[in-house]
Design a protein around this nucleic acid. Structure first.
Lengths: 219, 219
DNA sequence: CGATGTACCAATGTTAACAATACGACAAGG
DNA sequence: CCTTGTCGTATTGTTAACATTGGTACATCG
């Protein structure tokens, strides 16, 4: 699917990156619940790495908003209050609005094909957790298609928090989610392909609204 | 000016934060020009600190977009290409639009007073560098008045880059800048105080346009 | 003479030990 | 009984030494 021309970036990653990935996965898997403390010695022991890379990984996760840390007070997994959800939603809205405009203005056919593929992958999602993963992947594809480095970075800064948010969403009600979401995303793709800014913006806004309603409505 | 009620956060900062501040200031002062390499040993020697905090500081500066680093290839001061400037402008626009809406919707009188004060401080700016500092401080105040933690963080992620951008602007022409900018910001404050979303949005957009034009227009 | 392989060096990545700090428990005093 | 001061411990902040890697200059070969 559109090999981009170049062969491969071939950049080797550092240990800190892999540690960050491990911790991130552990959090999403539920090993570390929101509010739990992430002790450096414990992590370094479990991952068989020194505290240096762990420390660097935690700093990266903090950049992603997945954890929060205070001086000499350790690092804890982020807990999302209702206010946090509201912030996440409004900021995500601002970023997605720019992304949609950029996609409609500059995205190539290959970029749109990637978005399409991400939407298709949703049909194959086994459980709710997998669906959330696909959901995030879809929006990743949209931001990638926007071809806007800094916008993508801004999305990455809240991406994991949105993931966390969707995780609490499926905790509330898995019913409508698995069935409706794939179709909902297919409509987003269609609007993007049609280069219809107005329709796409409205659909993305509705998409976000649905997610927020599920979490906030039932006390 | 509005003590917020609480006495003081009283949180002590780590060494890494201070190191980050020092390096940041050095970059803005021109000690390290864009593209220059930031060697860990050199910095740790100059600041009389170990490489640990320096490493952590560089990671933080990378989060702020002030430097870029690759694995085993060191850290360099960010250089802004024309495309980067375009990205910065559009993303900043998206963030400021949300900020303006938030300010108009939720900002307290104290918040607006802070913005006002930031605008007044511009009259006392001695040179162009000081003016740039005030310019950034003004927008800091706006984002602070928005009372939106994550939005403020998103702004911080490009704040230093905008600072860098404004620095290249005054490199092009200092003439109009020193004279017009204070008045321009006063109009922004007025629109914010009037809670006039349409006018404020347009004025902020024009404000950004002016800055970009100076840098991009004269080849 | 150009291309290629190699060895060196400088800089970063990683590790482990040392120092400083926040939190909790417990005892003394009002 | 509540407040306050002190101590101990667990955890983070910091440091310095070791390991690994990328770049470069140079020698060698075609």
């Amino acid at each position: 699917m559109s090999e981009q021309g170049r062969v491969a970036p071939a950049r080797r990653r550092g240990l800190a990156d892999e540690v960050a990935d491990s911790i991130r996965e552990a959090i999403f898997a539920g090993t570390y619940a929101p509010g739990a403390q992430l002790r450096e010695v414990e992590l370094s022991g479990a991952l068989d790495v020194s505290r240096g890379p762990v420390r660097e990984a935690l700093l990266r996760l903090e950049r992603e908003g997945l954890v929060r840390s205070a001086w000499h007070r350790g690092t804890t997994v982020t807990t999302l209050s209702p206010e946090d959800v509201a912030e996440l939603d409004s900021l995500r809205g601002a970023l997605e609005e720019l992304a949609v405009r950029q996609v409609i203005a500059h995205a190539s056919d290959d970029d749109l094909a990637s978005v399409d593929k991400a939407a298709d992958l949703m049909d194959r999602a086994a459980d709710a957790h997998g669906m959330v993963r696909c959901d995030i992947a879809f929006h990743d594809a949209v931001f990638a298609a926007a071809r806007h480095q800094r916008l993508a970075e801004a999305w990455e800064a809240i991406r994991c928090q949105v993931h966390l948010f969707l995780l609490t969403r499926i905790g509330r009600s898995t019913e409508g989610y698995l069935a409706c979401i794939p179709e909902e995303h297919r409509q987003l793709v269609a609007a993007l392909r049609a280069r219809d800014a107005g329709a796409a913006l409205e659909l993305f806004a509705a998409h976000r609204r649905h997610a927020v309603e599920v979490v906030t409505a039932p006390a």
